Amino acid sequence: MLRFLESIQRQHSIQLPRYLIVGGLATASHYCMFLLLINFVAPLPASLAGAVAGTLISYQGNKRWTFAQGAQAPWHGQMLRFCLTAFAYNLGNALMMLLLLDRWPQSPLLVQMFSTASLTLVSYWINRTWTFKHETF
C-alpha cells in the first residue's frame, strides 16, 4: 500500500507542475491571439479565438507531455472530454467571480486569482482522472 501511495505522490509531483506550465502557455497564447486580433475584430470574437487557441495548446500539451504515459486514447473522445472540462472550468470561473465579487467588489484581481487557483486544481484532478485516464495509469 505504501508503494502505491508513493507512486501516486511521484506522479503528482511530475504531472502537476507540467499541468501548470502547459496552462501558463495556453493562457499566454490566449492573450497573444486576443491582442493580435483586437485591432481587426470586436473584443468578443478576439477573445473567443484566443480561447480556442489556448484550448488547443492546452489539450496537446497535456495529452503529449503532462499525462502521456503509454498508449494514446482515441482523440475524438478524449478531445470531447477535454472540451467539456474546459467549458465547465470557464463556467465555474464565471459563477465563482459573480458570487465572490458580490462579497468583495474591491478586490477583483484577488477574486480572479483565488478562482483560478481553485479551479485549476479541480480541473487538474478531472483531467487526470477522466479526460486523460488512458494515459495516466
Rank of each mutant, 00 (worst) to 15 (best):
M33C: 06
F34M: 00
L35E: 14
L36K: 03
I38T: 02
N39K: 09
N39I: 01
N39T: 07
F40S: 00
F40N: 01
F40K: 00
V41H: 06
V41W: 06
A42H: 03
P43W: 01
P45C: 01
P45F: 00
A46L: 02
L48M: 04
A49R: 02
A49C: 09
A49D: 02
A49I: 04
A49P: 02
G50K: 02
G50T: 03
G50I: 00
A51S: 04
V52K: 05
V52C: 08
A53V: 04
A53Y: 00
G54S: 08
T55Y: 06
T55E: 10
T55I: 07
T55H: 06
T55S: 09
L56T: 04
L56E: 04
I57H: 05
I57W: 04
I57Q: 07
S58R: 03
S58T: 09
S58D: 06
Y59A: 00
G61M: 01
N62T: 06
K63T: 03
K63W: 10
K63F: 10
R64T: 08
W65T: 05
W65V: 06
F67T: 03
A68E: 03
A68Y: 04
Q69L: 09
G70K: 08
A71Q: 10
Q72V: 10
Q72S: 14
A73I: 10
A73S: 13
A73D: 08
P74V: 10
P74W: 11
P74M: 14
W75M: 15
H76Y: 11
H76G: 09
H76F: 13
Q78V: 12
M79F: 15
L80V: 15
L80M: 15
R81M: 08
F82D: 02
C83L: 15
C83V: 14
T85S: 12
T85L: 09
T85Q: 08
F87G: 09
F87E: 04
F87R: 05
A88D: 09
Y89C: 12
Y89G: 10
N90T: 11
N90G: 14
L91F: 11
L91I: 12
G92R: 05
N93E: 10
N93C: 15
N93W: 08
L95D: 12
L95W: 15
L95I: 15
M96T: 07
L98H: 15
L98I: 04
L98G: 11
L98F: 10
L99Q: 10
L100F: 12
L100K: 05
L100C: 13
D102C: 10
D102K: 13
W104N: 13
W104G: 09
P105T: 12
P105V: 14
Q106W: 14
Q106Y: 13
Q106H: 13
L110F: 05
L110V: 13
L110S: 12
V111I: 14
V111G: 05
V111H: 05
Q112V: 01
Q112I: 02
Q112G: 06
Q112P: 04
M113D: 14
M113L: 15
M113V: 11
T116M: 07
A117T: 11
A117V: 11
T120P: 01
T120R: 02
L121S: 07
V122A: 15
Y124G: 01
W125D: 05
I126Y: 02
I126C: 07
R128E: 01
R128K: 12
T129Q: 13
T129N: 14
W130H: 05
W130F: 10
W130E: 02
T131K: 02
T131D: 02
